[in-house]
């Protein structure tokens, strides 16, 4: 390659239940580790200022923007990406199924991050009102759907009858 060598750091993470190890530069972002080193291209990059949420993954039970995390800082973590929700081509995760049923996606680019966020939202609040849903989606930008059917999809997953704001 070249005579230039960066100091590399070994990162070991559990990704979707599989132990993965990679040697990375300190500057490598988690999203690039996932996409470029581990081949998990379902996690997308939509901005560079932590606004859009297309890169959202789950790290140790928390939804996180993987473009704003250094890969080297995640060593030892358990990470779930969109590819980890419906494993082995099996049944869709309920959030995935609801997005399909309610036409909550168009171009699909924001969808993986959106689904990862909704998954956490419902974990913390199984029965959100419409305004709680919209507030809970503050970290994800969708340019196609106007959020209308994303809200409908999340409402369909609420554990109880609609609760009004």
């Amino acid at each position: 390659m070249t005579d230039h060598t960066e100091e590399l750091h070994v990162v070991t993470v559990d990704v979707n239940g599989v132990r993965r190890t990679a040697s990375v530069e300190a500057r490598k972002l988690l999203v690039h580790l996932l996409r470029d080193d581990l081949g998990l291209t379902g996690t997308h990059v939509g901005c560079d200022t932590s606004q859009c949420g297309a890169c959202t993954v789950d790290i140790d039970g928390q939804a996180v923007k993987s473009c704003t995390v250094l890969a080297v800082m995640t060593s030892g973590s358990s990470i779930t990406t969109i590819e980890g929700l419906a494993r082995g081509g099996g049944a869709l995760h309920p959030v995935q199924a609801a997005f399909h049923e309610h036409h909550a996606l168009q171009c699909g680019f924001c969808t993986p991050g959106m689904i990862m966020s909704v998954r956490q939202m419902l974990g913390q609040n199984p029965n959100p009102t419409e305004s709680e849903i919209r507030h809970g989606l503050a970290g994800n930008i969708c340019r196609c759907t106007g959020y209308n059917n994303i809200v409908r999809a999340v409402q369909s997953l609420a554990s109880e009858a609609p609760r009004h704001d």
Partner: peptide, 12 residues
């Protein structure tokens, strides 16, 4: 805290 950024940013 509820008005800071968004849920993902707040997690980190």
């Amino acid at each position: 805290a509820d008005m800071i950024a968004d849920p993902q940013v707040r997690n980190r």
